[in-house]
């Protein structure tokens, strides 16, 4: 797969958006959010992930999942591209793929979008304070899972293709060749960013596998302490790029009936309550614990990877009260004391 050089992002964005809708990061206060690219738009390079989770593109907050009675379903998804996904974002897509593309049942809406999504990843040049991908095998740049990846170098950007679609695009686009030394420069930048991640996360490093920690710690006190600061806003699960709970809501449409698929949250009080009234997770602390066990034990046992990519969005969303890294580190200490 090839690598080329572009002087400015605008050239890249114009070429991509000529073929499909392109979503790019836009500054919104201290964060980035996604926005449809138009040629008169300023082309910004996001040095770190966008604040909203990538799942929004594949699994919207609310969508019509079925219409009935009716013969055919039409999920018309136009090809689209998204720029600025980071390594953590790509890993979050892998996590969702496992759920929605698992063998016996497949989610046709998710799959239609997934097939139409052209992924343009980019290196993190300034990992944020709350980024802890480093603790879970992540890093500031991606090796796989993208159609193209963009890395800033002096005077422009390297664009590497990572799939056949990416290759085809670069072959047609006629960008400049890579200059000697540019690859080395890119690798040097990556090393620096990884170094920042390592430093920021040094004090949170776990000294045993995270599965062993969440399964081994009783956590009663720690979870209860966390629960005291929780106002049940469910922000952590909404911004989380891997949380994928939803519920189906029946609705009446003009001529038909429909099922709406809407995001849900395991942090919600009645999330697990049954019609008879029983609820296995009445206390907030039980819900927090379940959430951690799902991410670091249950999901892992099922699919072989953790259901957390360490993007730190939940910490951002929590205005500093709940910090997953700190909680895991404290649970780790509890297990150590046993």
């Amino acid at each position: 797969m090839g690598t080329v050089f572009v002087e400015n992002l605008k050239a890249l964005f114009d070429a991509v958006s000529a073929e499909r809708e392109l979503y790019i990061p836009k500054n919104a206060g201290a964060h980035y959010v996604y926005k449809l690219y138009r040629p008169d738009e300023e082309a910004v390079f996001n040095e770190v992930r966008v604040c909203t989770p990538i799942k929004e593109f594949l699994f919207p907050i609310r969508e019509l999942a079925a219409v009935f009675p009716q013969e055919e379903d039409q999920f018309e998804v136009k090809p689209f591209a998204v720029f600025g996904l980071k390594d953590c974002d790509l890993r979050s897509i892998e996590i969702l793929d496992n759920v929605f593309k698992e063998d016996d049942f497949k989610d046709p809406l998710y799959i239609s979008r997934r097939e139409k999504m052209f992924i343009i990843a980019s290196d993190c040049t300034e990992p944020a304070e709350n980024c802890f991908c480093y603790l879970f095998g992540g890093k500031s740049w991606a090796e796989k899972g993208f159609d193209m990846n963009v890395s800033p170098v002096e005077g422009g950007f390297l664009v590497e293709s990572g799939s056949d679609t990416g290759n085809d695009f670069l072959a047609k686009a006629h960008f400049a060749q890579v200059q000697p030394g540019q690859i080395a420069q890119r690798d040097e930048n990556r090393k620096k960013a990884d170094q920042i991640l390592a430093e920021n996360n040094a004090k949170f490093k776990l000294d045993r596998p995270v599965q062993e920690i969440v399964e081994g710690a009783d956590g009663e006190q720690l979870y209860t302490a966390q629960a005291e600061g929780c106002v049940e806003c469910q922000a952590c699960t909404r911004v989380c790029p891997t949380c994928h709970c939803f519920y189906l809501q029946d609705t009446k449409l003009k001529d038909y009936y429909g099922k709406m698929k809407m995001w849900d949250s395991c942090m919600r009080m009645s999330y697990a309550a049954v019609a008879g009234g029983e609820n296995p997770r009445k206390a907030i602390s039980e819900r927090i614990k379940h959430r951690l066990l799902h991410k670091f034990s249950y999901y892992l046992q099922r699919y072989g990877i953790n259901m957390c990519v360490g993007c730190g969005r939940c910490i951002d969303a929590e205005s500093g009260k709940m910090d997953l890294r700190r909680l895991l580190r404290e649970l780790n200490d509890e297990v150590n004391r046993k």
Binding site: V99, D107, C245, F246, Y247, A272, V274, Y298
Partner: peptide
Amino acid sequence: MEKNMSCGIGMCGHCMIGK
């Protein structure tokens, strides 16, 4: 076993007992 269910197909997360 009876648990809160929605999707019925192993995606929505409602019905989990452990893994």
